[in-house]
């Protein structure tokens, strides 16, 4: 079995995995970081989004071995010393989550969205989040949260 090594949430990790192991399986099952979720088997739902080398990525679309040497950030790596990342705080303030299952992927996608569109319009936010399903919130408060986290005018 291949041995892999990468940085996850600023810590170097190594593991032995079957070649067919997906990155999300490595994160959940080998590292015990269960905040990254699996909601489908066709890379549609986005519950498994993490950051790989600074970009958001569905961790079910990538083999663990492909992440060799990569810098990975999961939802567990966002809050610093118990203080929520501004995107996490905005989701809480604006009730952008209900059951919480899609939330980690949604937050990771939203952070990447703001990197690329620092002051997004509602239309941009909705278009950019089309790869993340939420069955609870109707997206209304997620859009509000992302807008608030951007802090801009969103025009």
């Amino acid at each position: 079995m291949p041995t892999i090594s990468m940085t996850v949430n600023n810590k170097t990790v190594t593991g032995e995995v079957e070649a067919r192991t997906l990155l999300v399986q490595f994160i959940r099952e080998h590292l015990g970081l269960t905040g990254t979720h699996v909601g489908c088997d066709t890379s549609q739902c986005g519950a498994c989004v993490v950051h790989v080398n600074g970009r958001s990525l569905k961790s079910c679309t990538m083999l663990a071995v492909q992440a060799e040497g990569a810098e990975v950030t999961t939802i567990e790596g966002l809050a610093v010393d118990g203080e929520l990342h501004p995107m996490q705080a905005a989701f809480k303030e604006h009730h952008g989550l209900q059951c919480g299952f899609c939330t980690p992927g949604m937050v990771m996608s939203a952070i990447d969205l703001l990197k690329r569109h620092p002051d997004p319009s509602e239309e941009t936010i909705r278009a950019e989040l089309e790869g993340n399903f939420c069955r609870c919130t109707g997206y209304h408060n997620i859009v509000k949260a992302v807008k608030a986290a951007a802090g801009g005018t969103g025009s």
Binding site: L33, H37, I75, L97, G100, P104
Partner: peptide, 16 residues
């Protein structure tokens, strides 16, 4: 009231 359960869900500490 902002939700008490959100901290764990937002930080990946929900337990499904």
């Amino acid at each position: 009231v902002r939700r008490k359960e959100d901290y764990r869900f937002l930080t990946g500490r929900g337990r499904y």
